[in-house]
Amino acid sequence: MAHGDSAPDGDTRFDTQVYAQRLARAAQLTGAAGLDAIVVGTGPDLRYLTGMTADTFERLTALVIPAVGAPRLVTPRLELAAVRDSAIPDLDVTVRDWVDGADPYALALAGLEENSVLAVSDSLPALHLVPLADRLQAPLRLATPVLRELRMIKDDAELAALRTAGAAIDRVHARMGQWLRPGRTEAAVAADIAAAIVAEGHTEAAFVIVGSGPNGADPHHEHSERVIGADDIVVIDIGGPLPIGYNSDCTRTYCFAEPPAEVAQAYAALERAQAASVAAVRPGATAESIDAAGRTLLQEAGLGEHFIHRTGHGIGLSVHEEPYIVAGNTDVLRPGMVFSVEPGVYLPGRWGARIEDIVIVTDDGAEPVNTRPHGLTRLEDDSR
């Protein structure tokens, strides 16, 4: 178990007090939202609140957090090992285990009136949602307003984990010249990168995008058997979770030869746009204003139509979570929010480029957790 707020490398959860504070805050927000209780299924929300990692299949595992009173965990008896590995044994959480043939939904709703106002986490499967709804007279609500408020503002333990993740993925990018070379396939390069991601402290490579030449114009291209060419522009977008569960995500763009003037000019505009969006990050700014800061510069450079996705997404226990940095999102930024800033330029059938950092909203601006150079990085081409 970790000591204090931070988690040593290799640890899978934080100190118990971190989870105790989160559960207390969850109960407070539940009451403030006019709810009697929330039901949290397995996944990132449950891990956030208890440190427990488990999967829900046909058997219900759920954490019930009432506005008043102690939380309780309903879980199949065969999942008790996962409970023991979490912070739950040290928390004020009642565990109600059950065996096949029992009614876990009755256990989940015990102590609640039939007309209780109940909200559920948005990932709870319909397999469990419907039986819960059948037992209540009032319609179920989504617990998203409670859970998003909790998870969107990172505490000190989470920020430390995200900084560690950012430094680890930066070390992988720093070694890119070892693997990324003309004549190799994208898939071969991706396999080497994936191994390096694990070697640098991640539990797995959650994603490895190696987009060379025209494949770089597809933002969600992964990798293929395409042979990388000496004149290619190559987008490398990589990341994964640490043992504690928090994720890295960083994109840099590489080349092997002096790029054509058109590419160099477009990339310079992209670099200015990414810097402008990072510079706009501060408490009180809106999420959409960060998107607009960089997008406006790309539009002025005649590249607006080639920036085809939002500027960023929140990150934590999930690679993509709130807040989303996109036009129309008027959420006001607050210290402790963490998200990507990743504008891109994509020329279909030709080439693409993206620059991505994860940034923390501080009291007076932004703290990037990724510090690798942002320019179009030229690697040595041994084939020339």
Results as ranks from 00 to 15, higher is better:
282 R>I: 07
319 V>G: 06
120 V>R: 03
217 A>T: 04
339 F>W: 08
266 A>R: 11
236 I>S: 07
6 S>R: 15
87 A>Q: 00
160 A>V: 13
181 R>M: 14
215 N>H: 11
318 S>D: 15
158 E>V: 10
95 V>K: 01
163 R>D: 14
354 R>W: 07
261 A>D: 15
183 G>Y: 08
220 H>F: 12
171 R>T: 07
44 P>M: 11
223 H>P: 00
295 R>T: 14
62 A>G: 01
212 S>Q: 02
94 T>S: 15
93 V>E: 06
140 L>W: 03
71 P>C: 04
361 V>Y: 04
231 D>P: 04
129 L>K: 06
309 H>W: 12
119 A>D: 07
56 T>P: 00
101 G>V: 09
381 D>Y: 00
147 L>W: 09
348 P>Y: 02
92 D>G: 06
124 L>E: 05
123 S>V: 11
163 R>A: 14
256 F>S: 04
319 V>I: 12
4 G>E: 08
77 R>Y: 09
313 H>T: 12
19 Y>N: 01
251 T>I: 06
88 I>S: 01
310 R>K: 14
234 V>M: 00
114 E>V: 09
217 A>V: 00
159 L>T: 08
233 I>Y: 03
351 W>N: 00
152 M>Y: 05
123 S>Y: 11
127 L>G: 09
334 R>T: 13
336 G>V: 08
6 S>L: 13
265 Q>V: 11
172 V>C: 14
192 D>Y: 01
223 H>F: 14
311 T>L: 14
335 P>L: 07
86 S>E: 10
286 T>P: 06
49 L>W: 05
371 T>F: 04
233 I>R: 01
180 L>P: 11
102 A>S: 13
271 E>M: 12
107 L>Y: 12
21 Q>T: 10
208 V>I: 00
1 M>W: 11
142 L>T: 15
276 A>R: 13
121 S>Y: 06
374 H>T: 13
287 A>Y: 06
375 G>S: 08
175 R>G: 10
98 W>C: 00
164 T>C: 14
129 L>C: 02
262 E>F: 01
341 V>T: 08
46 L>Y: 02
155 D>C: 10
106 A>R: 14
2 A>T: 07
62 A>Y: 02
354 R>Y: 02
317 L>S: 08
326 V>R: 14
101 G>I: 08
75 T>W: 06
360 I>V: 15
40 V>W: 04
191 A>W: 03
115 N>L: 13
25 R>M: 11
224 S>Q: 03
297 L>G: 10
70 A>M: 12
